[in-house]
Amino acid sequence: MEFISLLGRVFIHFLRASGQLGIFTVKAIYNCFTPPFYFKKIAEQLIEIGFYSLPVVALTTFFAGAVIALQTYTGFARFSAEGAVAMVVLIAVTRELAPVMAGLMVAGRIGAAMAAELGTMRVTEQIDALSTLSTNPFKYLISPRILAGIVMMPVLVLIGDVIGICGGYIIGVYKLDFNASSYLVNTWNFMEPMDVISGLVKASVFGFIITLLGCYNGYNSKGGAQGVGSATTNAVVSASILILIFNYILTEIFFNS
């Protein structure tokens, strides 16, 4: 009996939370496309998300590409198919590793920062103050972040693609002694536009998820420092989980039809 009522309560809580997130999402999207637009705020966020996330994304994709080259080489040696290394690196990096790695890294960096910043603004009544100064907080704070996330993540991932493939190339050529030019030719010949495009679409969706959840958790945070802390944690954890779920769904849509 006790257990059933607990289950019911959890279920109702879940419904309420998803309803709230749904309304927030609709409002956020609506406000992204209606004036006024705060171009300076959008530019700030583009730089914050794009430029300052570049080092972490570059590092993670580089090592991801490198490790894939190493793993495929040693693994595929069992079938004497070492020649496939260039292709595997290409597919793994563009389709999966660059978008997912960049997504998770940016979720940790940007999602957390957004939740903390908006959360602090909420608990110190700065968000309330905005609306008494002829400024819609949704348009001023949330829309620029979400737009920047959607636009900037694909750019980051495209750069990550190049760096990840470089990582594979460096391991392949300098450690596994492949011929440099044939490695590059292999990579180029195997490349299909869909590999890259699917990765970029994923990146855009991840950018939306990260910024939406960062903003949602921050905007709705309650209490003081503790509330902001848990908003930050929730933003990162929920964005990471959703990224992995949507990664699967999008892969299914792109490659399984």
Partner: peptide, 22 residues
């Protein structure tokens, strides 16, 4: 939201905790 925006445009508020944009 539109009505609130119009009404609040003619109201100034000093918040108890000042609520300055940091």
């Amino acid at each position: 939201t539109k009505v609130h925006e119009q009404v609040n445009a003619q109201i100034g508020m000093l918040f108890q905790g000042a609520a300055l944009f940091d």
